[in-house]
Design a protein around this nucleic acid. Sequence first.
DNA 1: CCACACTGGCTAACGCCGTTAGCCAACGTC
DNA 2: GACGTTGGCTAACGGCGTTAGCCAGTGTGG
Lengths: 181, 181
Amino acid sequence: MSETDRSRPVGTERQRDIVAAALRILISEGPAAVTMRRVAAELGIQAPSLYKHVTDKGVVEELLQQHAMAEFGVALRSGGRAPRDVAAAYRSWALQNPHLYEFAVRRPMRHDAIGATEQFAAEPLIEAVGGDRDRALALLGLAHGLVDLELNDHFPRGTDIDAIWRAGVDAMAADRSSTPT
Amino acid sequence: MSETDRSRPVGTERQRDIVAAALRILISEGPAAVTMRRVAAELGIQAPSLYKHVTDKGVVEELLQQHAMAEFGVALRSGGRAPRDVAAAYRSWALQNPHLYEFAVRRPMRHDAIGATEQFAAEPLIEAVGGDRDRALALLGLAHGLVDLELNDHFPRGTDIDAIWRAGVDAMAADRSSTPT
DNA sequence: CCACACTGGCTAACGCCGTTAGCCAACGTC
DNA sequence: GACGTTGGCTAACGGCGTTAGCCAGTGTGG
């Protein structure tokens, strides 16, 4: 949790206006539409004026990323705690918020700024596999990979993606105390 | 394999020049540098002339994607056939060719054009888990997710990523004939 | 042998992008 | 009431993908 409290939004008031506008555009029109001019227009302002509140387009994106990660974390807590439940929550949030998911999890991130929030989002998965950190991060990788492949349409048409999730999550969550190296 | 023979390069001669130039730029300077003007310059030509050979920047990207996927497929066959070996080959190729990997596997793809090649790349993973298709695609998701997270620097500093791979791949490759639903 | 179409270059330009420079009105403060 | 700060504005720059339109060379059919 540290000192950047996740529950209260971040940045100055005008910065929050900006990210709110960007968010609206992102959700309704996708990432390509999130331009400085477009965001400014959404606020009834000219593009260069944004730079009075924000040094870069990059910081707008970082703010979006933080927002997305926080919402994602909440979504992952909204259902059951069993691996299948968390996995299902992961997938369904990502599919319902593809652009937000993109912002949350793709593109490199600055660890200092985002770390706590990201950890907040990752926690449910770690709990779900009973605290085995390696297994938990593997499950995270699995979930992210499957979602990313699905979002980018890499599965042949007709693939039973549910079955893949079941197979993967069950394998990852299974008791492995009997198998040798 | 079908009729688009994977072993012979694709497109007209000039198209192959173009993708070769784009490839050189992509590898040495990253995706942002792959612009039409830059590619044209690489060929000693003006940007608009490219459009005599290519309708779109999109087709250049598709050609890059196909090339990358083909090379990736070869790399996945270059080592052992055991799950760990294939997984290791997957990871190491991706980390050594991050931009190519990006092109190969991220961004949506047209199934008709790329399907065969992609299947070519996915085969080794399917074999590695003994033909269980769901498990194989889960393994693919796992590998993709872990690579993507690593490339985008989503793991806390100091994370033992090897251990995550071991945990994940072993779980996915384990004999599961004893666990109930 | 020449007309002609086609191929593959070229320049100029358009509308977008992020961003900078410089101007100015409103406002709060000493 | 002078004055610095805040937050708008317009103009402009360089880069992007892309289109329009021009033209030299080339090969081919009559």
